[in-house]
Simulated scan of single mutants.
Amino acid sequence: MSESHERNPGTPLERGWFEDVQINRSAAERRTALIASGRTVKKKHQAAWLLRAIQCIDLTTLSGDDTPGRVRRLCNKARQPVRQDILDALGVGDIGLTTGAVCVYPTMVPHAVKALEGSGIPVASVATGFPAGLTPLPQRLAEIRYAVEQGAAEIDIVITREHVLLGNWQALYDEIRAMRETCGEAHMKAILATGELGTLTNVYRASMVAMQAGADFIKTSTGKEPENATLPVSLTMVRALRDYRDLTGHNIGFKPAGGLRTAKDAMNWLALMKEELGGPWMEPHLFRIGASSLLADIERQLEHNVTGRYASAEHHALS
């Protein structure tokens, strides 16, 4: 994440910014269907967009059987996300392409930090009782402190969904504000777990409260919910970003996560960011994609751009 990017200081809880807002799901679905079908990017332009998508990926492993070895292999892939011969054929062999970050569980942070030493790639850690977020707040804050002490530069926190479902906005604000303060210099991404919030109106309201509480990014999902990132949910969140910017002057980042698996998915979300917020939100300091298998499909698509042939997926394994 760019060191020069201004942090979000947050605001006091301003209910008037969101309590009267109602989101029409049908309208959101129509708008995102147009985005998904309306933009065609071909050949060199497509390759450029896919390279940008790679720069915005938080390359992620969040499995119960994670090991230091798996994390090291993932970090090696983050350092060299596309084979050198493909980059050379595209004429970008010297750009120093890396992913935006590597995202792991707190206990894996020191292994990732060591593996990424000297690369400039930040380590992001999930925390606060990920994925359910139902452990007591003191333990959740302690988990943030642990991850930061181990070297995490970014913290992906999870909110208490109950606060949203019951409309307890003060409790949600206070919780996220405490997490933001505990993060210190580490940038905080607030995971809303949108698939468990019930309505797009709730998604908008939770987005606004998270930003008021000081979130540097808002993020759709843990990747563990029945429904994760969708374009209608993402549209709702990026319009909340736009409204917050208009009200405060602060630019907040956005991270879709869960369910983005193909190069086409990456293109759709980049198109959403460009059309709704403009070019700056196609940069890694304001846009990240939480993904694991997505990178392999993008690399496969880039090889097709060079050779005209699709390699089998096993030729582009993550580790």
Rank of each mutant, 00 (worst) to 15 (best):
L318N: 10
V92F: 06
Y105L: 10
D66M: 05
C56G: 04
I95W: 05
L50A: 05
V104N: 00
T98F: 02
A291I: 01
D246T: 10
E175I: 06
R15K: 15
H45F: 10
N228S: 03
P138D: 08
L165K: 13
T307W: 06
G91F: 09
I57A: 00
G91A: 06
V148C: 11
V21H: 04
V209Y: 06
E3M: 12
L270I: 12
G278Y: 08
N268E: 15
A178F: 10
V203Q: 03
D246K: 13
T194Y: 01
E303C: 12
M179N: 09
L197K: 00
T230V: 04
T107L: 14
D243Y: 14
M282H: 03
L59G: 03
A28M: 11
D65N: 14
K114E: 15
T248L: 08
F287H: 08
L286N: 11
Q80T: 13
S37V: 07
R300H: 06
R180S: 12
T135Q: 14
G249W: 10
D58G: 01
I35A: 08
A78S: 03
H5T: 15
L295D: 03
Q55D: 10
G290M: 01
L272W: 09
A48Q: 12
R73N: 14
G223K: 04
Q46P: 03
I289H: 07
F254C: 01
A132P: 08
R73C: 11
G16V: 09
R15C: 13
G195W: 04
A53I: 05
M108F: 08
R161K: 14
D243Q: 14
H45V: 11
Y204C: 04
L294A: 02
W17A: 06
T199E: 03
R15E: 15
V158H: 05
N268K: 12
R70P: 03
L197N: 01
T262N: 01
A240H: 03
I176K: 09
I252K: 11
I57T: 01
Q301D: 14
C183W: 14
E175F: 03
R242L: 11
R309F: 11
K114H: 14
E303D: 13
I57R: 00
I86V: 15
A229P: 01
L90G: 05
L272G: 05
S293R: 13
M273I: 07
L235R: 07
A153K: 15
A115Y: 12
L165G: 02
A317Q: 10
T98D: 02
G167N: 06
Y310C: 09
